[in-house]
Every structure is written in C-alpha cells, then in structure tokens.
Design a protein around this nucleic acid. Structure first.
Length: 426
RNA sequence: GGAAGGUUGCCAGAGCGGACGAAUGGGGCGGCCUCGAAAGCCGUUGUGGCCUCCGGGUCACCGUGGGUUCAAAUCCCACACCUUCCGCCA
C-alpha cells in the first residue's frame, strides 16, 4: 500500500509515479477527497467522544458522592451526544473502508531508477551472460518435452490424466533432477539465508499482504470450503512471517529462503505456452526473501540478483538480465530485474527469476515495522525477493542445453552430488 | 469431531462496571554507589490516528467483531486462536 500521508502532502508526485505505469490516476484523486472528508468527520467524532468521557467522569463522581439523582440530566445529555457520535463514527468508518478498498488496488510507485515504458517491449536488456548465438549444435535444438519423452523423464499425458492441462508428472531421473535442483538451490544460499518451510495454504490476509489480493484474485487457486488460498510463491508466506510485528534494527536485514510448491491458475494465459514445462499450474521453487531497512535495500537487492545469477551460471546456462520498465513492473514492486534463461531446444528466453524491491509497499500492507537503533518510534521495513531457483524452466534449459550428440544429457557437475553421483541421464 | 479451561503491556500476572493505558514482580534503559562489577537504591520504559503556536493536546487500543450502559479490560452474544482430555489419523 502506498503511504497515504505522501499522497496527502504531495499528490502530484504520487500521481506522476502511478502514471508512469500507464495506470489511471482518477482513484488517487478520489482518495484525496475521501481522506479529507474522513479526517474531518473523525476529528468531530473524537471531540464528541471526549465530551461523553468528561460527562461520564462527572456522573461517576456524583455516584461516589451519593448524589446519584443529580446525574440524571447529565446522563440524558450524554445519551444524545452518544447518538451523534455513533452517526459520525458510522460515516467516518464507511469512508475509511472505502479509502482502504481503493488503496489496496493502487500499485506501488516505481523507483526513479526504473526505466520508462508501457509494456514488455520497453524492458531494458541490461546484459547477456554466457551467451553465444552460434554456439548451439543441432543436438541441442530439441524441445525438452521430446527429450523428456525419449529418456523417460516426463510423462505429460499422465500428468494431464491426473490433474488436467498444464500439470506435470516428472518420472524417474526427471523427478530426481527436479529434487536435485531444489536442494542445489537451497544449499548454495544457506550461508546467508535461513531455510524455512512454510505452509502452502494461507489465509486471505496473507495474500493481501503481498499484493496478490484483492486485485489478482483470478490468478490464485482458492479453496472455498476452508477459505484458504494456494500460494503462488513462497514470497506470500515469508512476507507474512513477520506480519504485525516490530523487529529490532539489529535483526535487519533478515534473510529467509524457502522451497515450496507454487500454484498459479494462469487465467490470462490460456492457450499460451501449453507445451512442456514453459507454463504450468503447479511447480517447485526456491525463493529468497529479505526484510531490510530502506538504506540496506539496494545492497540486498543486488545480493539476491547475484545469487539468482550464480545458480544459473554454475549450471552452465546462458541468460540475460532485464531491467523492467515502469509499465511492466509487478503491482507491488518498485524495481524489478528479470532473469531469463536461454533454452536452445525451444529457442526461447524463459523468465526464471524476478528479483524485486518492494520498498515499504508490502510491509505497510503486512504491518511489518522495525525499531531504529537510534531514536524513537517505529519505521516500516522494506521487503525484497527473487527466485533462487525455479524448477520447471531451469529443468527445461538444463535438459536442452546439456543434451549430447548421442541423445543423453550431461548432468552439470554441481548437481551430480544430488543425483546419486549420476554424470549422465539416458 | 466432542468436552473443559484460557487469551491483559517486552515477559509473568492482578484487576471482574466509574479516579484503569491498566496494580505488583521480572526484564530493558538512565542514574546513584563502586577501582570495576554484583547486590542495593532512585527514576524511566507501549502502539497507532488526528490536531499542533512543536510546549503539547486529544481520541483509540486489555484475542476479533457486535451488544447493554451516562460510563466496559470488567456484563451479554458470536467468532478466532491456544492448552488439556477423548475420538480419528500421516
């Protein structure tokens, strides 16, 4: 949630920021107007409450002094004030609820460093790593679903039989590779990130905290009977780990990681990338997340990006880094770098990590604060996160990139220890 | 799923209609004492909203949401969560 005080004191700046996303800013004007009315009413309500409190104290005194009969008039007066207070409170609460409802749908203000642009096409490709267009042989130009079928690593048909389209069944060494990637992703970050294992079903409030609700309701699986949501990423439970808490500055940055299943309805993507592992409803991912002060945030952002890159590099994959433009930024993010890995078999760049800085947007929703070492009061923390390793697309890139002329797959060295020492698949 | 008990400040724990933002103890912080420390003593110690002539003022918060009352931590109702026991179970 954006800071309503900033909207109040500098509405033009907020409008300009939101406009960079190509979003309509009319709702901001509406909030400014409602906020002014709400505060007026709340102030009046508090004043009336104060009068009621004063009278009650007086009545209390009269009762103690055994002059209860003298209190009747005051009680009558207070009752009338009470009715007025109730009316004011109802109106003020109604406006406050309306403001919150709008504000929960207003995205974050992009960082000034975030490039201009209105769509995916305007994202800035910052750099290519380990990539040589001409370095790929014919044996690498086979899509992973074909390789998976040849070597018995994927069973697309049976996955569909069980759960429908865009659900996957990994088989044999395919499943082992899946697990190896997860363990690899966790182990290489365990030096600085505390491993967590959160629940994958969460309450509505948990989804609201990260910004996945209310605006993106259609993207998530919802278990109606129990009113629980299947998490689209471990970002969701990890961001709420400290919800409604006040941390010590000494605890920051607090770095966490978790492997979880992730569930996405992919509502807007029907018919796109339906083959293989490019887009699936359920997948495994190792997520890195941190709570930090605003001052620490840039360094932590760089750390997560470097770690996400390191995992890809050591798997021997090619990738590129994109600096997302304002128009393509996720709603909660202020700045995002996307990592896209090159999969030669499908000849596509696959997004495998979004490394984002959310400023205090999520933390304000989640109400996560910290007590500064110096000075009084509390401050809202900053949150950052990114995928340390997202299994299906990395799995696909590994299989396609490391396919040998004889049709087998060379297991990257860093994974061998997690695959019972196997150096080849097939 | 059934039964009983519980939820108060950083922690423990009192309060069960009025002077309660809340006793008392512990912890933290500051000070005294000391060569230094312990002990002891004194003081201090929540969060948020709004207003502010920046001195402060005011309102809210005792699990959550309603209700009763001039007045609710305290009474009533509903819900959530926790603990224990029974049942079921990986």
């Amino acid at each position: 949630m954006i800071d309503i005080r900033l909207l109040r004191s500098d509405p033009d700046a907020v409008r300009a920021g939101i406009a960079r996303r190509g979003e309509d800013t009319a709702s901001l004007d509406r909030v400014v107007e409602l906020d002014a009315r709400q505060r007026g009413l709340a102030e009046e309500r508090d004043q009336v409450r104060g009068e009621v409190n004063a009278i009650s104290r007086e009545v209390g005194g009269l009762h103690r002094d055994g002059r209860a009969e003298e209190a009747a008039g005051l009680q009558e007066e207070s009752r009338a004030l009470g009715e007025r207070e109730e009316a004011l409170a109802a109106e003020a609460d109604g406006l406050a609820a309306e403001i919150t409802e709008i504000l929960l749908r207003v995205p974050n203000i992009p960082s000034p460093d975030c490039p201009d642009g209105t769509s995916e096409a305007d994202n800035v490709i910052t750099r290519y790593e380990q990539w040589d267009e001409d370095a790929y042989g014919e044996h690498q130009r086979v899509p992973h679903w074909e390789i998976g079928e040849q070597l018995g690593l994927l069973d697309v048909e049976r996955g569909t039989k069980l759960s429908g389209a865009m659900f996957v069944m990994y088989t044999g060494m395919g499943a082992t590779l899946c697990r190896a990637l997860i363990q690899y992703g966790l182990d290489r970050n365990a030096d600085a990130y505390r491993e967590m294992r959160p629940p994958t079903l969460v309450k509505t409030a948990t989804m609201v905290s990260t910004g996945h609700l209310p605006k993106f309701e259609d993207d998530a699986y919802h278990l109606e009977r129990d009113d629980l949501w299947a998490i689209p990423t471990a970002e969701v439970p990890l961001t709420s780990f400290c919800r409604d808490e006040v941390l010590d500055e000494a605890d920051l940055p607090m770095k966490l990681m978790a492997h979880t299943s992730c569930f996405r309805r992919e509502a807007g993507s029907a018919g796109r990338d339906t083959r293989g592992l490019l887009r699936v409803h359920e997948f495994d991912k190792v997520e890195l997340l941190a709570y930090a002060t605003e001052e620490q945030a840039p360094e932590v952002h760089a750390d997560i990006l470097a770690r996400a890159e390191g995992a890809i590099t050591d798997l021997g994959l090619s990738y590129r880094v994109l600096d997302l433009c304002a128009g393509d930024l996720g709603g909660s993010s202020a700045r995002t770098f996307d990592l896209e890995v090159y999969a030669p078999g499908v000849d596509q760049w696959l997004e495998v990590s979004s490394v984002s800085w959310f400023s205090d947007y999520q933390a304000r929703r989640a109400n996560v604060r910290y007590r500064p070492a110096e000075g009084r009061g509390t401050q809202v923390v900053n949150t950052l996160n990114g995928s340390g390793l997202a299994v299906p697309r990395v799995w696909a890139a590994v299989v396609e990139t490391h396919r040998q002329p004889d049709g087998t797959i060379a297991v990257p060295e860093v994974l061998q220890r997690y695959m019972r020492g196997a150096m080849h698949i097939g």
